[in-house]
Write a protein that binds this DNA or RNA. Structure first.
Lengths: 239, 239
DNA sequence: ACAAATCCTGCGGGTTCCCGCCATTCGAGG
DNA sequence: CCTCGAATGGCGGGAACCCGCAGGATTTGT
């Protein structure tokens, strides 16, 4: 069995390779790519069926790399291995995972034993396995009604890029007023308060973005991919 | 000589300790703190005169920790050791470094030899040393007139937190129109274009924040400390 | 010391935003 | 069949925002 490691931090990569050698004796060859682009190329060239993928990398983060890899070979088993439990990554990953494909999400703070377990479960046995820490995040954000629906998230992205109501409406194919209603619930869920007697007067739009970023609902990577998507949409709108 | 290492990534910490042992034979004891809070406490208790500090940590990032440490002992020599060359960190660090105190800024991607060199220069010889990579960043952003003045940066922070023009004006002790002029130049410097024929219609305010984050002029950590400052100001305004 | 450049400020007006009020649609449950 | 709730939108108005114009203050260069 051959395995691909996509990880830009050298220390983490070598640690990971050590654990792999120990946990997966059936591995005959491990290849190491330093970023998302290299990872995609290596996956395309090497026909790997098992990949360990870091999330935060430049250029091309793990979510993007995984998307193109899965588009070409949906059966690939990918274990995401990340420092962060950002909701943005979580959402990004769950948006792109194909049906019936094995994947996992484990934090770098996980113990060596746990990592070995997850490696076997996902890459060998083809199971789906998500770190408890991540699951807790999902549930925590779900517990109040703070969880954003997919359509609300889409509007949030548009807002974050600086689109005006009118353009968002056009892009999402809805009326202006509907978008504004979405924004309303968005403000609510992000905790952008109505002006209370104490400290009123926020610019809700900016405040929403600000809070989305502070709470890790959005992060820089996702913002950048969203920008690219927007550029793409804009360019083909000019017709 | 005794040295304090503040670093939350275990692999990086142990690597660093190895390099320290090799480069600084005069070190008799190294203490390891896992985050900014622990770092502050350790510095307070241990009277260290030399510290190596990671920047991105939770809770309490390296900039904040360094600020309180320097407030108590301005002569402390601090070497910042970070993965990122965010302008936000750079600005944060240069805002808090006391006069005549030794510090340095080196990237984790630097070679082992370079790290050894910087360790000696800053912690032993008391020099100021900033990674070439970082210097380039500073110059690159300075080359057009894209570099933000301190007052513009302050307004950017307020904007990012969602304050309205009026409140920013009050907080900074200036007139409404002045703030709006600042915002004008801010938009210009951040590349928030006037509506061109191609794709007009951006919400400039949100767009400015969005670009500031994409270009690493702002990052989450700085946003969060700014929020705390704001809370503080708001609470003592209520009089 | 005089001029130029830069910063600060008031005024006015065209847009965009936020949101209350209300009508329509559609699926779930009584 | 009726009702209820959630999602969709039209209308309209008050507030905030963006910014051109223009006068005054402060700093800087020579």
């Amino acid at each position: 069995m051959r395995i691909l490691v996509v990880e830009d931090d050298h220390f983490h990569a070598s640690f990971l390779q050590g654990v792999i050698a120990e946990a997966l004796p059936e591995v005959t060859e491990t290849l190491h790519a330093q970023d998302g682009l290299q990872g995609e190329a290596a996956a395309r060239a090497g026909h790997f069926e098992a990949i360990v993928m870091d999330l935060q990398m430049v250029p091309r983060n793990g979510v993007e790399a995984a998307r193109t890899i899965w588009r070409e070979r949906p059966r690939t088993r990918i274990l995401f291995w990340s420092n962060y439990s950002d909701e943005a990554y979580l959402r990004g990953v769950s948006e792109i995972v194909p049906a019936n494909s094995a994947y996992g999400y484990v934090l770098k703070t996980a113990s060596r034993e746990r990592l070995k377990l997850v490696l076997r479960a996902v890459l060998i046995d083809g199971q789906v396995m998500v770190d408890r820490e991540i699951q807790r995040l999902r549930r925590r954000s779900a517990s109040p009604r703070h969880v954003l629906s997919d359509s609300e998230y889409a509007v949030l992205l548009d807002l974050a890029l600086g689109l005006q109501d009118r353009l968002i409406a056009e892009r999402r194919g809805m009326s202006l007023r509907t978008i504004q209603n979405r924004l309303l619930t968005l403000y609510e869920k992000l905790g952008v308060s109505d002006d209370e007697p104490g400290v009123p007067a926020f610019n809700k739009r900016v405040r929403a973005l600000s809070r989305a970023i502070s709470t890790r609902t959005l992060n820089v990577e996702m913002l950048e991919t969203a920008q690219r998507d927007l550029d793409h949409w804009l360019s083909e709108r000019r017709d």
